[in-house]
């Protein structure tokens, strides 16, 4: 096979031996353990408090926080984002948070307002 010398055919020379492989596999199992544990905690919290109005805000924010931790774990370790160059990490992550952060903010603000002026349930499909 021809190897071009002006591009990276294979970016990370990730070839490694058995000793290093073992360390990496242990890390993946640890990440799996943490992700599973968070999921179990989430489901348990949901089962216990999902109908308790006083716990609503606590549940909401702790679920969102735990979800972001899980998403971070998947991106950083499973998708190897942690191994990429810092410039590349910024190229992918910054546009996402800037745009989606704004979208979430404006959508939820507007929706909450529309909810307060909604005429009544009869025409609740008229949005």
């Amino acid at each position: 096979m021809d190897v071009r010398d002006d591009v990276y055919e294979y970016s990370l020379d990730n070839h490694h031996g058995e000793t290093e492989g073992k360390k990496i596999r242990t890390l993946f199992l640890k990440v799996l353990a943490v992700l599973s544990l968070i999921t179990i905690v989430e489901v348990a919290m949901g089962m216990m408090w999902s109908r308790d109005e006083s716990m609503r805000a606590v549940l909401k924010y702790s679920f969102i926080l735990m979800t972001l931790v899980k998403a971070g774990g998947i991106t950083w370790y499973f998708m190897h984002m942690g191994d990429e160059k810092k410039t590349f990490q910024y190229v992918v992550i910054v546009p996402f948070f800037v745009m989606i952060g704004y979208l979430i903010f404006i959508a939820l603000t507007e929706a909450t307002y529309l909810g307060t002026i909604r005429p009544s349930v009869e025409n609740y499909l008229g949005f």
Binding site: F96, M99, I100, L103, I104, A107, L108, E110, A111, T112, L114, G115, R118, Y124, F127
Partner: peptide, 18 residues
């Protein structure tokens, strides 16, 4: 990810409204 975020945000929009 933008597509899915758009969908989930639309879901959040309607959920907050109702």
């Amino acid at each position: 990810a933008f597509t899915f975020s758009g969908l989930l945000t639309a879901y959040g929009f309607m959920r907050h409204k109702y």
